[in-house]
Structure formats: structure tokens, C-alpha cells
Nucleic acid binder design. Structure first.
Lengths: 225, 225
DNA sequence: TCGATACGCTACAGTAGCGTATCGTATCGC
DNA sequence: GCGATACGATACGCTACTGTAGCGTATCGA
């Protein structure tokens, strides 16, 4: 049995909705989207503290050792939260990992510079920053790898991916509406032409990711309609 | 999460019984210069058979379960080679994995169609085929992930990467020499613009990888000098 | 104040993997 | 035919990990 787990629901009333924040430098109070109308959902502080400490340690471990390097024992050691407590909140190790990965999204804001070049450059620059941070760019390959075989992680990967692409779609649609891009623009292909070279540099060729390169990518992608 | 596949009774047993080798990797007997005469270096057939069976089973396992899914016990089960024998040939599991990964390269040939568009399209089409084969494109994320932390795998990754980029460099240099591309062409950036979108589609957006997309990528990358 | 809840700690069963040791057998080169 | 070599099979010892059980303690909310 290859660890067939589903339903990673912390039984202690954690809203499973779309989370925000990086889990590290984001604000401590996790956002309550769609649950309580005002502020926290009145959760026991002990629960909140434990969950946060565990997720933080898990995220750290993810960055250091990848998906496979996360063990519940090690998370317990680092977070100072007892292993039994961890299992009180997440039914399996897989559920914990999935939960931690889901908080890596940090969907970027949609820029509005007035031109499609400006918007796209802003988005790519933000991604470049993300690719420079050790943790995010170090965890992503783990997720991609796991997504090749694990359907649950594949879904997580899909959601992260979708979160990153949505702003591009918005910006492109706006440009089409303004007439900057032809109406038959293939958004998916355009995004691949924009983001692909950046990812390639980070994880394959390992060449520097600087502003001139971003400018060059934008010029080529938008150059020949 | 990453698997732990239970026992597939692979059992390839007999010597001439080649397993489902899929791509059936490249060289079998490498003849390093300065060793023996050309061809096989007069190796005991038992050794050759064992090594081959083990490496083949390892490659299969890599494709199925990724780097983390390769255990010596499972390789032994599938290859029919005793675990002790495996350890007689490779000192550690890591050495075996590195060895198996090193044989995934299969450096492509350099095309010569007369135009840079033709050459580049041929190269990208070959890569597209590679991305379609289950094994290669399933192992690469594992290697990328491991390369983030393991220096030895990072070196393997670098070599594979270099092997894939070399034909591009040759083709680009030829185009520059012919005057098809300006003398100050940034080969590395051009390659990123060509290969990046393909990789992106395979491992991130998961959109289809077809000939029109390749044509589009070539057009854009070469379009605006 | 007091019951309910969350937590920490220790111990435990079960599994998997790495790498080694031992011994007997098959095969190769000559 | 014979020694040298490679191999197979089994059994270990060790470590690490998953997930659970029991019990006592701290903390929260009313």
C-alpha cells in the first residue's frame, strides 16, 4: 500500500480554504477567507500556536531537504511540538506536507502600468525575486517531482501553478481589450514563452537571472505577435 | 507520499531476457581512452551481465518512482541480482543511482538542414520527443530536485544539461558564421528562450507539446534578433 | 473555581531501508 | 581438470520513520 491517504483535514476546525501568505514572513495571523466575517474564528490559542509552529518547521525543512526530507519526528524536534500533537492535527505525514506546500503559493498582485510590456515585466520581475529566494525555488522541484506520481501533490502543484498564471491571464486579456495584442492571442503559449526561460535558467542552465534577461525575454515573447 | 511501491515481482531472471528497456539507453560498453583496445575491455561476462541487469532495473525504477524510490532491495528483486553482488560493484546506493543517472544523457546528434530555423526546429522536436517518453521526463525532476542539495547529483545534472545544450551552441555558432544571426548573439539566452517554454509546458502548465507550439517558439526566439 | 480541552512525554509495534557477514555454488580462464 | 573469481541466498545489526496508546500536566473558557 503506497500510503493512500485522502482528506487531510485537521479535525480542529481549520478552514481548508485558499490560504495566503508564505508561512514565514507573512503575518502570523492566518487569514480567515470565507469563514469568520470579522477576524479570527475564535480558535484556541494553543491550537493556533501549535499549528503555526509545526507548519513553520515543516516549511523550513521543505526548503532544506525537499519533500522527502520532511519527517514527523524532525518536525517535532524543530518545532518543539510533540509528535502526538502533530498527529492530533494532521492524520498523516502526507497531509502535513500537502498542507505546508499549499501555503507556498503567495499569489502575486496584478500590476497595472498601462502597457502590456510594463505589466508583464513587473510580473516576471516578481517571479525572478521568488526564484532567488532559497526556499521557494528549492521546494518547487520537489513538488514537480512528486506531482509526477502523487495525484494529491499534482493537485497542489496545479493550484500553485494556476495561482501564478492568473495574473498573466488578466494582464494579457486587458492588453487584448486595449488592442495591444491581437484578439487571437494564445495566452497559454505566451505565458510559456515568458515564464519558461526564467524557470529554465534557475533550474537547468543556472545562468544568472537579471533584469536585462527579463527585458530580453519580454521583448522576444511580445515581439512577433 | 513519494510512493514506497510494494513488491512488483519483476524478475528478469535469464541472461538474454532483456526487460522492457523502453528507450534502451545508449552505450553499453564504454571504452575510455587509454584503457584497452577499442570496444570491450575484456571484462568477465558475469560482471558485464550483472552490471547491465542492475543498471537496467535501476533505470526502470527511476522512471517509475523517481530518485527516492530506488532502493537496493528493490533493484535486487527486479534485476534478479543478489544484493551482495550489487554492493560488490557499487559501494553505496548513491553511487548506483549516480551511475544510472549518468546514462540517461543520450546526447542528440547535430542536425544540418541549411538554415538555423530548420536546425533549431529539429533539435526542439527531438527534445519534444524526449519529453514525451515517460522515463526521461519523469526522472529529470528528481535529478533537478536532488541537484538542489546534493553536489554529486548537481554535477550529474550539469553534465546532462551540457550535453543537451552543446548541439544548440554548435548550430547557433554556425548560423552566426553564415550571417543568419548577428555576431553578438547571446547563445545562452537564446537557448533559454527555445528550450524553456518546452520544459515549462511539460512540467508546469502541462499544456500539449505539439509541432505548432514548437514552430511558434522558434519563431519568437529567432524573430526579434 | 472547575470541567473540558490541548498538550508533552515516554513507550511501543510495525515497517523499511542500508550495508555487512557467512557460506555454499556456479562459472571463467587456463 | 583446477584454482581464482563472481555470484546467490540467508541472516543479521543498525538506524530511521510512521502512527498509536497511556498517563499526567498545563491552559482555556465560563
Amino acid at each position: 500500500m503506497p500510503t493512500r491517504e485522502s482528506g487531510h483535514q485537521g479535525r480542529a476546525g481549520a478552514p481548508p480554504g485558499p490560504t495566503t501568505g508564505l508561512g514565514d514572513d507573512a503575518r502570523a495571523g492566518d487569514g480567515p477567507p470565507g469563514d469568520g466575517p470579522a477576524g479570527d474564528a475564535r480558535v484556541d490559542d494553543r491550537i493556533r500556536r501549535s499549528r503555526e509552529a509545526v507548519l513553520r518547521a515543516t516549511a523550513d525543512l521543505l526548503g532544506e531537504s525537499g519533500l522527502g526530507g520532511v519527517s514527523v519526528d524532525e518536525v517535532s524536534r524543530r518545532s518543539g511540538v510533540a509528535k502526538t500533537t502533530i498527529y492530533r492535527h494532521w492524520p498523516t505525514r502526507a497531509a502535513l506536507v500537502v498542507d505546508a506546500c499549499s501555503r507556498l503559493s503567495a499569489d502575486p498582485a496584478v500590476p497595472d502600468t498601462g502597457t502590456v510590456e510594463g505589466d508583464v515585466t513587473a510580473l516576471l520581475t516578481a517571479i525572478t525575486e521568488l526564484l532567488r529566494t532559497a526556499r521557494w525555488s528549492s521546494v518547487m522541484p520537489s513538488i514537480v517531482d512528486a506531482a509526477e506520481r502523487d495525484p494529491e501533490l499534482a493537485e497542489v502543484h496545479r493550484r500553485i501553478q494556476e495561482g501564478h498564471m492568473a495574473p498573466f491571464r488578466t494582464v494579457i486579456a486587458r492588453a487584448v481589450h486595449r488592442g495591444e495584442l491581437p484578439p487571437d492571442t494564445d495566452a497559454a503559449a505566451l505565458i510559456a514563452g515568458l515564464v519558461g526561460p526564467l524557470f529554465y535558467r534557475r533550474w537547468f542552465s543556472r545562468d544568472p537571472l537579471d533584469a536585462p534577461f527579463v527585458a530580453r525575454v519580454v521583448r522576444h515573447a511580445l515581439g512577433a505577435g
